[in-house]
Structure formats: C-alpha cells, structure tokens
C-alpha cells in the first residue's frame, strides 16, 4: 500500500516538474523578466523559478502589471464551480445511462442511448454550446445565454463562487439571486460535461456487459439476488476499476473543453483568462494559466489513482 502510494506520488511529482520546465520556458518569453534571478545560467535559474512558484510569487502581467497569482485566484473559483458541476453531471448521468444500457443490452434503450452518446461523443464543444444556446435560450427562451448571473443583481464577490456568494453576501434579492446563478450554470455545465458523459456511459456499459458474464454474477443470480443489487453492488464495484482510469483521462478532455466553454459562455474563469492572455501575448499570465490548469489535471489524476488503489484489494495488500 505504502509503496504503491509512494510510486503514485513520485509519478505526479515528475509530471509536475516536467510541467514547470515548460512554464519556465514560457516565462522566458516575457518582455520584462518575471523574477530577479541571482544566477545567469538558465539551469540554476530554473530552481530559483521553482522557489518563486512555491512562495506564490508568479510574476506580474506584462500588460496590466497585476500580480499574476492574485489574478489567477480571482478566476479560479468560477472554473472550479463550472468544473465540479460538469464533473458531477458527467459521472452520475454517464453512470446512470451506462447502467441502463447494460441492463437492456441489445434492447431499444441500449441502442438509443448508445447512438445518442456517439453523437455527443463526436460533437465539438463550441458547436454543442452554440446549439444549446440557440435552442434553449433563443428558441425556447428558458435559459440565459451567457454570464454567471443577471446584472440586475449586484453580488459583492466574497468567495467568488457565485452560488455561495449569492447565499452568504449581504443583499436584498432573496433566493432569486441564487436560482438565477444556478440557472446560468446549467447550459455551460451541460455543454462541458457532454463528451465526458458520453464516454462515461459507453465505458460503463461495456465494462458492465463484460462483468455480467462472469461466474460470480451467475452465482449471485442463482442465489436469487435481485438484478438491481447485482448490478449496483456487485458488478459496478468491479467495473469501477476501469472507470476510474477512464475518469482520469476525462479530466484532461474536460480541461480543454473548459477553455472553450468559458470563452463561449463569457464565463470568467481561468480558461477564458488564459485564452485572452494568449491573444494579448501576455506570457506571465499564460504561464500561470497553464500551470494552474495542468496542475489541476495532475492533482485529479493523483486522487483518482489513490482511489483506484484503495478500491482494488490486490493493490491494498501490505508489503511482503
């Protein structure tokens, strides 16, 4: 257990260091040097750069002169809010669809769901986002087009999580502001979660279908266990293994989608900040945005691997 945990941590650390080498390279493109380096050679400079990163000194923007780290913290909550909603949507709806399909293997529900997910799977995020806006906002008029909240509500940013701020900040709008913010979240979250949700559903289905052929499932059935219990408790647990691995891969897809979805829906998160920094060639901000989003990917994968480790009893075995 400890040994494999250690191995996982080392892998994450190595990927992180690789990432910082990349961002160090980007930071060299800034018009004014990002940091005051003691040494002149790039190699010792890199270690100084790491030191600066760890002390939250990420440099100042080329254009606005603002501290990049503060800017990043300003944009992070919006991204996290959107990401966590999309993730929850992708995982739960994806699982649910996958299980439904597996249960009705070969039936019309299976075929319908699988072709629907294939469509979702092949739909580019920006196109999907625009379609949703066209239908739900412009045609039906039941959803706002973009932004985080209606501008008639002025919510002082406290945590910068809009859903939390609408609840805790001092205003007279009552619960209307909260629901308005929630409503603004739906379309971007659906847009963003569509591809991972489709992949999740397909993966759940295929691994469940596989597992349901196993002997122990037949035993459970002959024992007279109800079908739902077999699927939800016995089969799904084994399917989790591969699903977690796939889930880890989804995170990076989610991140690329995040940048596009934020741009489209004028969502003020790290993704749209990164994209506007790219168009302004503001290298310190680009460096910080990449570092933040990629670290998030590494962190997620780390967590998932630890979870997978925990779920697999074979890996849990003590050192022998």
């Amino acid at each position: 257990m400890l040994l494999s945990l250690f191995r996982i941590l080392i892998t994450a650390l190595v990927s992180f260091l690789g990432l910082t080498i990349l961002t160090f390279g980007i930071s060299q493109q800034a018009t004014t040097p990002l940091h005051d380096y003691q040494s002149t050679h790039w190699f010792p400079q890199y270690f100084e750069y790491l030191g600066y990163l760890l002390t939250a000194n990420w440099g100042n923007s080329d254009l606005s002169g603002n501290d990049v780290f503060t800017e990043l913290l300003k944009h992070f909550p919006a991204s996290i809010e959107l990401l966590s909603f999309s993730l929850i949507l992708a995982i739960f709806v994806g699982l649910f669809f996958g299980i439904m399909a597996a249960k009705n293997r070969g039936g019309w529900l299976d075929k319908g769901l699988m072709s629907a997910t294939l469509v979702g799977y092949s739909m580019p995020v920006f196109w999907w986002g625009l379609l949703l806006v066209l239908f739900f906002s412009l045609y039906l008029g039941i959803s706002p087009v973009a932004g985080r909240i209606d501008y008639a509500y002025y919510i002082q940013p406290i945590t910068r999580f809009m859903l939390i701020d609408t609840l805790i900040s001092n205003h007279n709008y009552g619960s209307a502001a909260f629901f308005n913010a929630l409503n603004h979240l739906v379309l971007p979250a659906v847009t963003l979660s569509w591809i991972p949700m489709a992949i999740m559903a397909r993966m759940t289905r295929s691994s469940l279908v596989n597992i349901l052929k196993f002997e122990y499932i037949r035993t459970a059935r002959s024992k007279g266990l109800p079908e739902n219990r077999i699927i939800w408790i016995h089969a799904l647990r084994n399917a989790m293994q591969s699903l977690l691995t796939i889930g880890g891969l989804q995170i990076s897809i989610l991140m690329t989608g995040l940048i596009i979805a934020e741009y489209i829906f004028a969502w003020p998160g790290v993704g749209s900040w990164l994209l506007s920094s790219v168009s302004r060639q503001d290298y310190p901000s680009i460096q910080a945005g990449i570092l933040a989003l990629s670290s998030l990917v590494i962190l997620f994968n780390l967590m998932l691997e630890i979870m997978a480790n925990y779920l697999d009893p074979r890996k849990r075995r003590p050192l022998s």
């Binding site: 906002s137 412009l138 706002p144 087009v145 741009y263 004028a266």
Partner: peptide
C-alpha cells in the same frame, strides 16, 4: 442609473446575448 459592460468576447454569443435581451 446603473451601467454594466457585459464582457462577451465571442461575436456569435454577443449577438445571441443581445437577441435574447440580455
């Protein structure tokens, strides 16, 4: 009395926002 600049970089979405009355 109150003036808000809603920042929407994508021209298609800007127009969508405008058409929806946002």
């Amino acid at each position: 009395k109150n003036l808000v600049y809603a920042i929407t970089p994508d021209p298609a979405m800007r127009f969508a926002r405008f058409s929806a009355g946002e």
